[in-house]
Structures are given as C-alpha cells and as structure tokens.
Write a protein that binds this DNA or RNA. Structure first.
Lengths: 335, 335
DNA sequence: CATTGTATCGAATACGTTTTCGTAGATTTA
DNA sequence: TAAATCTACGAAAACGTATTCGATACAATG
C-alpha cells in the first residue's frame, strides 16, 4: 500500500504538502502541485478511505435500509430497480453504499448502531416498516435521512405517485365502459391508502357505486393470497368485469385463477397490475399497468440525501412526488 | 460519538485496558473486564470501524463485483438471488459488502483501486466478463478472491452444475419420448459450453442424432433474441418437438412466439427453461426447469472467501460444484 | 534600509483504535 | 528472606490522513 509519505519522499516535500496538493489547497505552488499529482499517478496512489474518514468524519458512504426480513427487498423487482438506481447515483457522486442490517456477526446491533459503526454519512430508507421503533430511532437521530414511499416530517421523502397512478388506471378502465370494477389491494400501508383513495376518487367522479365486496385485501407480491382474493371475487353473485391488482407480480396468481376457470383475459374479464416491471411486458396479453419511475425515485433520493449531507444546515425537508406513467398493455377491454 | 476513552475515564482504567477487555485479552482481570463491558453497554458504545481498520488492516468488508454495465446484475433474478445470499452470509459472519465499480465520482478507478480505496478484505466476483483485463488485474492482485460460475486456477470458485443440469433436463425430455430436441443457448461463455456439453452427452448416450440447426445461439435474459431464435426453429422444415431455452426469463420470448402461432405448450411443443426462478412456477403451465441453488452458491462463496481472508496461507484454492435440482413443471409432454 | 506583505512550505497534532513492552505489586519458590 | 514468577495494568507508538499555525524566503513598499 502506497501512502502520502511515499509520495512526499519521492518529491522531496513534506506529507502535509502532498496532502494539500492533492486536495487542491491554494498555498502550494503550481509546480509542486503538478509534480505531486504526477508522481501520485505514477505510483498509483489511492488515498486510504479509513484514515481520511478518521480525520474528516466523512465516509462517503451511504447506508441503505431495505427490508430486513426473510426475503430481502433485493428479490422484489420494484425494489431491486430502485436499489440499482440508488447504487448508480451514489457512485456517480463519489459515494459507496452499505446495507444496513441489525445482525452483523454475532453482534446484534440496532440500525442506528450499524450506521455509526460504519460511519455512514446518511441513509436512504425504503420498503421497511416505517413505524418500527428502530427505524424511528434512526430517523430521529443525528443522521441525514431520505425516505422512499413514506414521509416523516423531519426528513425529505421521495414518493411514487400512488394516488395518481391508481386514479389513472381506474379512470382508464371506467372510461372503457366498465362499471363493475374491483380492487384487490395489498397490506394497509400508506402506499395502499393512496391507491385506494385514487381508485375511489375515480369512481366517485363518475358516479360509479362500488359495493364493499369489490374492495379486497391481499398481500403484495404474494401470488397465493392474490389468487384466493381473485377466486373470492369471481365467486360473487355479481362479479366485477374488471379487477385491479396490487402489483404485476402478484397478478400472476389472479391470472392463473382466471385462466383455470376457463375465462379469457380480456374478453371475459379485464385486469390491470401495478409497477410496470418487465414481467408485465413479456406476458401474453401484455398487462395494462402503471409504470413507477424507479430510476428517478432512486436517483432523486440520493441527490436529496447528498444535498443534506453536504449542507446540513441549509437543506430543508422536501416532499417530492415522482410521476409514473401508464403502460396500456392489452388487458382492458372496451365494452 | 462515544469512544474508548470515555469508557476508560468512567471506569478509572486506561484506554489500553478497555480495548483489551473488549477484545477478550486474557491479561485483564475478570472483574475489570466485566466492569468495562458493562459500562460499554451502558454508554451504548460502538467501536469506530475506521480507526480499527487503520490499525488492523481488516475492514470486515467484502467487495462484490457484479456486472457493471447498463442494467446491473441486480435486476437479473438469478443474480439478485445470489447477491442476496452473499449479503446475508456476509452479515452473519460480521462482514458488510461493498459494490465494486469503476466510476466512483468523477474519479475513474480500476476495480483493484476501488478495492484498495475501501480496504476490502476480499472480493466475490460473479457475472462479469472474466477475461476483462481489469478483472484479471484484480484476480492476480494480493486480494483473496472467490469466483462464481467461473474458475481461475489461483482462486477458489463456486460453480453451479451447468453440465449436470443441462444433461438432466435433456435426458428427461428424451426419456419422455422426444427424439427431435433443440437447444437455444446463450452467449458462448463457459457456462454455456457446459450446458451444450451436457445436452450433447445426453443425446449421445441415447444415440440421438442432433442436426446442427437444432442448436442455436441467442442472448441470456433477452426476450427478443430468444423469440427470434424460436421462430427460426419453428420455421424449420422438420421442426423439433421440444426446445430447451437458455433461461426461464428469456423463455417468455419463445413462449409468446409459440402461443401466437396458435401452438399449445406442451401439446404441440414441449419446452424447458433454466434457473428455476419464481417466474417459472407462477406461469401457466408451470415451466419445467433446472433450479440453480442460488442460496448455496452465494453462501459458500462467502464462506470460502472468509476462510481465505482469515487463513491466507493455509487455505488452498478449491473448485466447488453446487448441485441444483430439477423442477418438473408441466411443459414436457410424454409422447 | 527598515518594514510590511506575500507566497510557499513543514512541524505538529489529532482522529480512535490496537498492540507491544515495561513495570509495580502480589504471590510463589528455594 | 531473597529471588523468581505471575498477574494486572498502563505508557507509548503506530496506522494514514487533514489541518492549523508558524517559519522562511523573498518581493514590494515607504
């Protein structure tokens, strides 16, 4: 490992001078600065992040808090896309990312402790139980925090337009002539509330009455639960002509149920999903859905976080909504 | 931030003693050791990883080198599962992971440089161009390295049983009466070579002649390329009765082509995929495929890497094969 | 010529640990 | 009882860097 000292020797200057030259201080003559930089390249010098961190208290490391249970968020397509853009935007700005978990080795530690241990400069939080005491502890700590799809009042948040998306899908279906529209939604999180609200607004605006049994709860990303909910819906005395599903992936459960009953999509029943993941576009017929802008969600979250990290005092909490867009697909029939 | 010194003051001992007590040295009396540990808990002490690293040269940080281009490996289900198990196994052993990329901020750096900058203790490499000079530079560096699905001779590797998997699928199809079996494979990587080899072995063992046009190249994970290859296959004068696809996801392209021609799976044509990702099990009919054991692949890679990190001298390179298993599905018809 | 100002650099310290080595006191041994 | 051995602890140095502040040399100014 080659250090600042090696460079100083080779250049005949002090380590202090090397450090300054490398960091662009202006009390170094242009000539020596150039010399230092040149030999640094020659020797293939890399600053030691740990030493630097120890002095500056800046790790250039962003903590990422995703769901910690069983199947990690990594395997959800929606979140793996967000993670990917978080990672890329971080790297483009000179930051690495570290997954924050509570079990690191035999040591059980809190999220906050993990952050401290790794000296994260800030944290992006997504897809967790936002009421979890440990998450709250982190949010209320000294750490800059940005949340995705949830909003605390002391931290910036980046939000997918769930109300809008759901509203638009519901409107689209209604405007293609449907009057008996059902919604199968996920667990009652904030995101879900907004989707339900968007759905109801669209219905209300058109004077469409939705009986309570047309709104059912299932579990996000859980094929089996959605299949059951779909079966129940189809078993109603007066079944809907269109069903909105909690997400594209879980829709596959409903799809199986529909197909196995010998029904055709969209001739016998219209459907739509949510997310706009790849899956929607490669199945047949292509699934009408709402494409969430995962790329922007991740990038903006990181941008806002870095803003806060680098200007802890001036940066104020923002509530940002990222617009998605409809993917029309082929699963909503005009009637 | 509370340090070792705070504890030392509160306990009336020296910082050295605190450090030793916390690290289980045996030249500390049980009483003081207990006292130190107790107050450490009380004060909610967390060691500073940077300072520790600076002294010990051990970061407890594992570099993860996944594909760096465009769409990251994160969005491939196979690799996101591996990544997930790499992450979990690392954490269970007290390590965090860091993505190794070449663009960190404005600084372009090599993979090796990035590792050095972050003081990784070792690196897991998967899903990259293994002949890339920068990857080779890393492999031939001082760093402990473990590769997944590729093998260098100076590093341990963990390999999915591609030959075996392909062989087993091909045999299964043949043993259900098929004689005209086609293989659409991915780019010619080592993995692909093994799959082709497994396929040919199974055919040869049964004395089945495979004409060259029954073996076609497409691109992994590329729905469109596979769709085209499928179309070409179906256009043959003497089309196959069964097609093996490069992976479950890309199979969806072939599936669309088949369905749009009014053919039925498996009545008119039998198919199988590869990977065993969730998708295979939620489509209808369920896709016959080979489940790669992503969980073990990731975990063993990390175990072997840590072994090497902690015993740099005694640990010798191993070539490890992880067995998958067949998922029978419903897409191969008995004829 | 004396003074002030400017440009360039280096000595020293600190960040929070780990680890070597020394030492004071207690205990055992001869 | 003197010497040898243990036990328990602390002083100090080191890891690689950033940064303050003083020092030096020289130019400019009056």
């Amino acid at each position: 490992m080659i250090t600042i000292k090696d460079i100083s020797k080779k250049c005949g200057v002090s380590p202090a001078t090397v450090s300054k030259a490398l960091n662009g201080y202006d009390d170094i003559s242009p000539e020596t600065a150039a010399l230092v930089r040149r030999t640094a390249k020659e020797l293939n010098y890399m600053p030691n992040a740990a030493a630097r961190l120890l002095k500056t208290n800046r790790s250039h490391n962003i903590g990422v808090l995703f769901i910690d249970d069983s199947m990690s968020g990594l395997t959800h397509e929606y979140f793996s896309h967000i993670l990917n853009s978080v990672k890329e935007e971080s790297e483009e700005n000179g930051y690495d990312i570290t997954f924050i978990s509570k079990n690191i080795g035999k040591q059980k530690m809190s999220f906050l402790q993990h952050c401290r241990y790794r000296n994260c400069d800030g944290v992006v939080i997504a897809n967790v139980d936002f009421q979890n005491p440990e998450v709250l502890e982190l949010v209320n700590s000294e750490y800059p925090v940005v949340t995705i799809d949830f909003s605390y009042d002391n931290a910036s948040s980046v939000n997918s337009d769930n109300q809008e998306g759901s509203y638009t899908l519901a409107s689209y279906i209604a405007d293609r002539g449907h009057r008996k529209i059902a919604l199968i939604h996920g667990e009652r999180t904030l995101v879900t509330q907004k989707r339900i609200s968007g759905f109801k607004t669209a219905m209300a605006e058109r004077g469409i009455e939705i009986p309570p049994e047309y709104i059912a709860e299932a579990t996000y990303h859980d094929v089996e639960s959605v299949r059951k909910a779909t079966a129940a819906m189809l078993d109603l005395d007066d079944p809907p002509t269109a069903i909105m599903f909690p997400d594209d992936y879980a829709f596959m459960g409903g799809r199986t149920e529909i197909i196995e009953r010998g029904l055709n999509i969209p001739d016998d029943i219209s459907v739509c999903g949510y997310d706009g993941v790849n899956l929607a576009k490669i199945i047949d017929p292509k699934l009408t859905t709402w494409e969430q802008n995962t790329d922007q969600l991740g990038r903006i979250a990181v941008d806002k976080l870095i803003e806060k990290i680098e200007n802890p005092d001036t940066a104020i909490p923002e509530y940002i909504v990222v617009r998605g867009r409809m993917y029309k697909g082929e699963t909503v029939k005009q009637i």
